[in-house]
Amino acid sequence: MISGSQRDAAVVRTCVGCRRRAPASELLRVVVRRSEGSDNRLIPDPQRRLSGRGAHVHHSSNCLEQAVRKRAFARALRIEGAVDVAAVRTLVESESAERPTPAHEAGRDRMKTTR
């Protein structure tokens, strides 16, 4: 029988920011909570337990900013209107000091090739 941690390791999701695939355990799940106003508020779901459609993003401010710039959250969550990412941004920025640089960003400077 497969345990919960083994099952989570096998689940692969795509980051809406950089579009790279990664194990779900390496990504932050985000869900939307509709407010009475026109804004849809994104809620971080680190335990992946909240109900509703989710989108995934790396724990990186670069990936978060790419997702915001490309309006990827609205597309992935199938919502219309403005999206408030303040709660997700706060969590990602607080984690950035604790987490090492994500593997997909670590070698960017070394990726330049000369011919």
Rank of each mutant, 00 (worst) to 15 (best):
R53A: 08
N62R: 11
G4Q: 13
H104K: 06
G107P: 01
G52I: 05
R110L: 15
R34T: 10
I2Y: 01
D39Q: 12
H104C: 13
R21P: 01
A87C: 02
V57A: 02
D84V: 11
R29Y: 03
A106G: 00
D109Y: 04
Q47E: 14
G17T: 05
H104D: 07
S96A: 15
N62E: 11
E95C: 10
T90E: 12
E65K: 12
D84N: 15
M111V: 06
N40K: 09
T14Q: 09
R78C: 07
T101E: 14
R49A: 13
A82C: 01
R99F: 10
R7Q: 07
G4E: 14
G52W: 05
T114F: 15
R71T: 13
A82Q: 11
A97W: 08
R71D: 15
V30W: 01
T101C: 13
T90C: 00
P100L: 04
S25I: 12
S38L: 12
H58C: 15
N40Q: 07
R19G: 03
G107K: 10
A86F: 03
R75W: 02
L27R: 06
D109Q: 12
R34N: 03
V85F: 00
H104A: 05
S94Y: 02
R99N: 12
N62Q: 11
S35F: 00
A74M: 06
A103M: 10
F73H: 08
S5T: 12
A86L: 03
K70E: 14
H104R: 10
E36A: 11
S61H: 03
D8H: 03
I79K: 03
R21H: 09
S5F: 05
Q6Y: 01
N62Y: 06
I43V: 15
V12K: 09
K112A: 14
R20Y: 07
E26F: 02
C63S: 08
A74L: 07
R41L: 13
I2N: 03
I2L: 06
R41W: 00
V16T: 07
L50G: 02
P102Q: 09
V32T: 08
R108S: 10
R20C: 12
E105Y: 14
D109T: 12
R20T: 08
R41E: 11
V30H: 01
R75K: 15
T113W: 15
L27F: 09
A10V: 00
C15E: 04
E93M: 09
M1T: 13
Q47R: 14
R48I: 10
N62D: 08
R41D: 00
R108G: 04
A97Q: 10
L77F: 07
E93F: 02
A76N: 03
N40T: 00
V16R: 04
K112W: 10
A82F: 04
T113H: 13
C18K: 11
Q6M: 03
A24M: 09
R89S: 07
S38V: 12
